[in-house]
Design a protein around this nucleic acid. Structure first.
Length: 246
DNA sequence: GCGACAG
DNA sequence: ATCTTGTCGC
């Protein structure tokens, strides 16, 4: 990586808050040089969901990563951390608001997941550098995005039945999919983050669909992070010892 | 200038 | 994202 970029991203928790939008754009353009969209060949034994929860009118950020077994999708461990941010929310720059906290949550995981799914996009982004791709490049991990709303591009509405999907196209380029995860409900938007292909992201997303609109990884991450914010779960890395299974 | 716009 | 109650549909 270029020295300038390394200096900027090496310790995001201390630098991202001070970046201007123009500087953030340059960081994204630099990071894109390291994007890898080749097929993922390794096994998937665990898949994690990453998300954050915010208090209204506050700089406090509750970040969480929940690791699920694969393909059974049962929570096996989770990492929660409280942090703060002053970087404003701006479409296309979500990573600069959420990544510092998510990096802390990721660091305290002792048994890292094989894949991480983000509540947001991978390459389904104007500069192909959504939060999943950004995080995947910084940590050299296998990541993908699952957004609840379209950020950029055009697509045909997929059929009403669960499992149907259509490509999302932006400037002649296929950058993701609109995937129907539940009958008659709005689709979610899937794209690869880093170290996997477009097809990988679609196949993995389909294997994570259960009875809800959101795939299990991000659905669980959202659930845990809210339990954390409301004080029902504690900060730190925890193994799930669910005796209810027996 | 107008419309679009992850969380 | 978050603040909120009931309500319509599978």
């Amino acid at each position: 990586m270029p020295a300038e970029l390394i200096q900027t991203v090496q310790t995001p928790e201390s630098n991202y808050d001070q970046l201007t939008i123009a500087e953030a754009t340059l960081v994204q353009q630099d990071l894109k040089k390291y994007l890898n969209l080749n097929p993922y060949l390794g096994p998937i034994r665990t898949i994690a969901g990453a998300d954050i929860s915010l208090s209204l009118h506050s700089e406090t950020v509750f970040a969480g990563i929940v690791i699920l077994s694969f393909p059974d999708l049962q929570p096996v461990s989770y990492s929660l951390i409280k942090s703060s941010t002053t970087f404003p929310y701006a479409p296309g720059y979500l990573a600069f608001r959420e990544i510092p906290a998510l990096l802390k949550a990721y660091e305290q995981i002792s048994d890292k997941p094989d894949v991480v799914m983000f509540d947001g996009n991978g390459i389904l982004h104007a500069r192909r550098m959504g939060i999943a791709s950004h995080f995947g490049i910084l940590t050299d991990t296998v990541t993908m995005g699952c957004a609840k709303k379209k950020l950029v591009g055009k697509y045909d509405e997929p059929g009403d039945e669960k499992g149907r999907y259509c490509s999302v196209i932006d400037r002649q380029e296929e950058i993701g999919f609109a995937l129907r995860t539940k009958n008659n409900l709005k689709p979610v938007f899937i794209s690869p983050g880093n170290n996997m292909s477009l097809q990988d992201s679609l196949e993995i997303a389909m294997k994570c669909i259960s009875k809800h609109r959101l795939p299990e990884p991000t659905r669980r991450a959202h659930e845990y992070v809210n339990l954390f914010r409301t004080g029902e779960l504690r900060e730190g890395y925890h193994e799930v010892n669910d005796l209810r299974l027996f």
